[in-house]
């Protein structure tokens, strides 16, 4: 066990995978030489360690980067490619949605595409809506792609290593603003199974389901509400596809109330799927209607007060929980 930042934990996962398996290579814009020199960035120092054959800086060509991963994976390599910011994934979506996710199916199960796409996500770095836009619901809605979204350094390492060695295409969404967060990270080839959620804190009055950086907003709300005698159970999904329905439904069966939280926009967001599953499969356990706390349905604004306004806050969660508990 070592104390690493989230970014270092991701780097550790890449390092372990590359040292363990010659088939693993990484590619992307600035994965070798970056405009940012920061040891907390996930690919920092890998070029020096593994050389240019396995650490490939690419042109600004997202379709070709994703195509590289699809084609190389079906010949047996284990590509790990980076898409710099989440909105840029739109330029790679044909390769991911129509090819990575579908070519195995179209082959009747003859081919496989064991690739990993790392993508940086996040709101609150004043870059505007073409650099900040969480599109995980798009990917989760595309059959054949697994989607994971870690929230701690240990999860980041464990899920990335599982993604790299998963036989299917996996998109790993990295919450950029967590790159500098420190945490204990197990040594060596540490893997967290994809599709297993985690109860971060147990509670009895209401479940908050979230993922990525939003988990910390939920924990902040839980702290405040515990002072009022309201006990929140915070669930970190970790993996959106496949989804740990068991953990979700078990938690709702314990608390009888659910607030779903994400930093992405609300309409058609992943929270709608969570809400629908609970409504379909656990309606009888609910003591109050499900609430969603999510961003307003607008592009991410850039002006500081507006960007803060955009991102779901612990106050919004507290309000949602109070109304839910009040209705009991």
């Amino acid at each position: 066990m070592a104390v690493l930042s989230f970014g270092q934990a991701l780097r550790d996962a890449l390092d372990v995978a590359m040292s363990e398996d010659e088939r693993v290579f990484i590619a992307g814009e600035g994965v070798g030489v970056s405009i940012h020199y920061d040891p907390n960035l996930p690919t920092h120092g890998l070029l020096e360690k593994y050389g240019p054959k396995r650490v490939k800086d690419t042109p600004v060509s997202e379709a070709a980067i994703a195509g590289l991963a699809v084609g190389a994976s079906t010949l047996g390599l284990r590509p790990v490619v980076e898409i710099m910011f989440f909105p840029f994934i739109t330029l790679a979506t044909d390769m991911l949605v129509n090819h990575a996710g579908k070519l195995r199916y179209l082959s009747g199960g003859k081919s496989s595409f064991p690739l990993t796409v790392r993508v940086k996500a996040g709101v609150n770095f004043a870059a505007g809506c073409q650099h900040s836009h969480n599109l995980e619901a798009w990917l989760a809605h595309s059959p054949g792609l697994k989607v994971v979204f870690p929230s701690t350094p240990a999860e980041a390492k464990g899920l990335l290593l599982s993604a790299i060695f998963d036989p299917n295409p996996v998109v790993v969404v990295e919450e950029m603003l967590l790159y500098w967060m420190q945490g204990e990270v197990p040594d060596g080839d540490y893997r967290i199974p994809i599709g297993k959620a985690r109860v971060v804190i147990p509670g009895k009055d209401c479940t908050i389901v979230s993922y990525g950086g939003a988990v910390y907003t939920a924990l902040e709300a839980a702290k405040t509400l515990s002072g009022e005698g309201i006990s929140l159970e915070v669930v970190d999904l970790r993996s959106l596809v496949p989804l740990d329905r068991r953990c979700l439904l078990d938690s709702v069966s314990r608390t009888g109330r659910l607030v779903v939280l994400h930093d992405a926009t609300k309409f058609g967001g992943f929270g709608a799927e969570i809400s629908a599953i609970v409504a379909e499969e656990a309606f009888d356990m609910l003591k109050a209607p499900v609430k969603r706390v999510a961003a307003p349905d607008i592009p991410v604004p850039v002006s500081p007060p507006q960007e803060i306004f955009y991102k779901p806050s612990s106050e919004m969660i507290i309000e949602a929980v109070r109304s839910t508990v009040g209705k009991a």
Binding site: G71, T74, L77, P79, M95, H99
Partner: peptide, 11 residues
């Protein structure tokens, strides 16, 4: 063509 890039890269 992007798929071919990947296949050729592996080769």
């Amino acid at each position: 063509p992007p798929l071919a890039v990947g296949a050729a890269f592996a080769q």
